[in-house]
Nucleic acid binder design. Sequence first.
DNA 1: TCATTTAGTTCTATTTTGGAACTTATAACG
DNA 2: CGTTATAAGTTCCAAAATAGAACTAAATGA
Lengths: 109, 109
Amino acid sequence: MKWSNLETDICPIARTLFVMGDRWTLLIIRDCFLGLSRFEQFQKSLGITRHILTGRLKRLVDEGILVKHEYARGRYDYALSETGRTLEPVLIELFKWGKKHRPVRRKTA
Amino acid sequence: MKWSNLETDICPIARTLFVMGDRWTLLIIRDCFLGLSRFEQFQKSLGITRHILTGRLKRLVDEGILVKHEYARGRYDYALSETGRTLEPVLIELFKWGKKHRPVRRKTA
DNA sequence: TCATTTAGTTCTATTTTGGAACTTATAACG
DNA sequence: CGTTATAAGTTCCAAAATAGAACTAAATGA
């Protein structure tokens, strides 16, 4: 099966994951909640490859989760849309689960 | 940056996504909540490639989210562990978001 | 004995991601 | 002005992950 078939799946969880169930997307959204907004900020924060970041941001805008805004001549930044902000409970549950069940570990040498 | 570095990230969301932030893993967990337990069931339900499924199940067991159980001679099935069941709120929020913001669409021809 | 069921492997092709250098446009410096 | 710095992407190649289909192995049942 192809991932893209999830878009029209009967299960709402599948449809949600079609949009953000890949590597990085949810972390970009997290960074938006933390106040990051610019390409360079996301890139430094996540260490994500630049052209992958480009693709993710484009998709999040297409899906109506982020809005792109020209903050200076030819410079664009990104912010959560109203729809995007409704993802807060999802992130909160991911946070709570991680905090409780994946305690911080020292990097083993 | 590599995905595997998320394991020791300071952010609990990142640590959670290290385990289930890839394609398929959260859908396998969803299927477990729906009562599926066998390899063939997951495979048919998701249409996922068999050896990818093998890897995901192995990892979920290693991470303590699923438990593997011999239900017949040489036949194993999988069930949510106690830790795995604590993922319910995460799935509920993904469900609610999808239901509200990704309404069902007819497959466009 | 022989077909069936089921969990899991193996193999190749395609897609996705990682890493690093390069481009374009504007702003800032002197 | 001419140069340097910033910032948002692009482009290119290598490495890793995923898709698809065929194959194994072990137990079951007719």
